[in-house]
């Protein structure tokens, strides 16, 4: 049996809102370690990998592995019914055909209970090996979101160039071009404002902004985004949770 209680419903709300436009049907795999999701978008370009570690929950028990096949659009509708500050408990039997969500208002005795029918979702789990990336950058997630949104007004593609002392985001379009250059900086008072670059090799990679627009929906999950890039391989965009992460693997674009 699964019983996982979030101190605040807002965390799961944010997670679902962050991924529901990238993937619709996915298995939430619950184990003693927490909840994982892995799913690839329909165009096979973007992969979502989520770990909500058991330490995120104020109470968590899961005696044996339980898979919850969820339609995220329906899940999002139900989860919006709860208040952000409510306790949220997920409950499922061992071989469930539904999952129960219990919202508890902390300021009153109101308890709201919803159940979502589960689906049989057949998706293959990919083993993604840890790899050495040419460059790892860490920057404020909100800045990355703004840069991508600004540059998406010009182009469908975002070029990212990384050297040891700068990160350059570029977009070239029919109506004009744009670029934003960032320099590494350490902010001691506000570490979440820091920008760091670890470089093994200079990077010049291009990505579809339509996918990045979905990735940056994770912005509210973490003050910082970690971007790991190697030339000509999928990049990893990561929002760290208090325990766990939301990762997106995005295949690059190559020049013809």
């Amino acid at each position: 049996m699964l019983e996982g209680k979030f101190e605040e419903a807002s965390l799961l709300k944010k997670v679902v809102e962050s991924i529901k436009d990238s993937v619709q049907l996915c298995n939430f795999v619950c184990s003693e370690h927490g909840i994982t999701v892995q799913a690839v978008d329909d165009s096979r370009v973007l992969l979502v990998s989520l770990l909500i570690g058991n330490e995120v929950f104020s109470d968590y028990r899961c005696d044996r592995n339980i898979t919850l096949g969820v339609d995220l659009k329906s899940f999002a509708k139900i989860i919006r019914c709860g208040g952000n500050d409510d306790y949220l408990t997920l409950i499922a039997e061992d071989s469930p055909d539904s999952v129960t969500l219990v919202f508890e208002d902390k300021n009153s005795d109101r308890i709201s209970e919803y159940s979502l029918k589960l689906m049989e979702i057949d998706n293959e789990f990919l083993k993604i090996d840890d790899m050495d990336y040419d460059s790892v950058i860490k920057m404020p997630s909100i800045d990355f979101q703004k840069i991508c949104r600004d540059l998406s007004t010009l182009s469908e593609s975002l070029q990212i160039l990384i050297t040891k002392d700068s990160i350059k985001f570029m977009a070239e379009g029919e109506t004009g071009n744009g670029s934003v250059i960032l320099k590494p900086r350490t902010d001691i008072d506000k570490p979440e404002q820091s920008i760091t670059v670890k470089l093994n090799n200079a990077v010049n990679s291009t990505f579809g902004l339509k996918y990045i627009a979905d990735i940056v929906k994770g912005t509210s999950l973490s003050n910082q985004i970690v971007i790991k890039i190697s030339n000509r391989t999928p990049a990893l965009f990561e929002y760290k949770l208090q325990s766990g992460y939301l990762r997106f693997y995005l295949a690059p674009k190559f020049e013809d």
Binding site: V40, L47, A251
Partner: peptide, 14 residues
């Protein structure tokens, strides 16, 4: 001109 790659070229099973 850029061409979008698929994850399948990089991850088996994708």
């Amino acid at each position: 001109n850029f061409r979008q790659q698929s994850l399948a070229s990089f991850f088996s099973g994708a």
